[in-house]
Amino acid sequence: MPYTVPILNLLAACLLLISFAMLSRRRTQRLVNLFAWQGAILFLSTCLVAHSSGLHELYYSAALTLLLKVIALPLILHRLINRLGAQWDSETVVNIPLTMLAGLVLVIFAFGLAQPISMMATTITRNMLGIALAVILLSFLMMITRRKAVTQVIGFLAMENGLFFAATSATYGMPMVVELGIALDVLVGVFILGLFFFQIREQFESLDLRNMENLKED
């Protein structure tokens, strides 16, 4: 198909765009929606790669993505946020333009790193490795610059998205067993972290992670 590569490029670019949007948004619920969008794009791109490469097992992982990242996790997170009353996350450690500028530098760094690697890869999606790397780093940056526990989890999940994208783009996906394992891990992780949230809130009566700084021994 002649349009596979341009469309894949477009999807990859959108993925990057969503990562940046995540960096710039203040409301937690918006973040969850963006995360769901990211999952949807991941689903589409995986389907496209599966179609063009003829590897049918990629369809399974695409379906898994759809189920878990587009439907299940956002639902769980939304419920969690409502239960916790944590809709707002107005406080960021660094102001947003500066964060985005740092994000930009990270993207260049990631692209620069990926250039030699993508030269070696043979898949049609090799150029996307840089974007995958950038998505991972940007999610990391989001985790660093946010103060609320829920956003940290979203950052963590977005990072996993980036890894997944890296796997599909560089090597046409991981073995099915590994993928299932990761999916299960993520799901269980979210549940456990959800429990943690309640514990944190009970302890400090807020989800602000600055409170945890008091835990260190002086």
């Binding site: 590569v5 940046f20 710039s24 333009p97 985005m100 994000g103 930009l104 692209f111 974007i131």
Partner: peptide
């Protein structure tokens, strides 16, 4: 307003970078 305009600037730069990485080779 600076935040809004910084966003548009970043989008333009991202476009540039994406082009450099993805577009140039094809």
């Amino acid at each position: 307003a600076p935040e809004y305009l910084a966003m548009s600037f970043l989008l333009a730069v991202l476009g540039l970078l994406v082009h450099l990485l993805l577009g140039a080779k094809q």
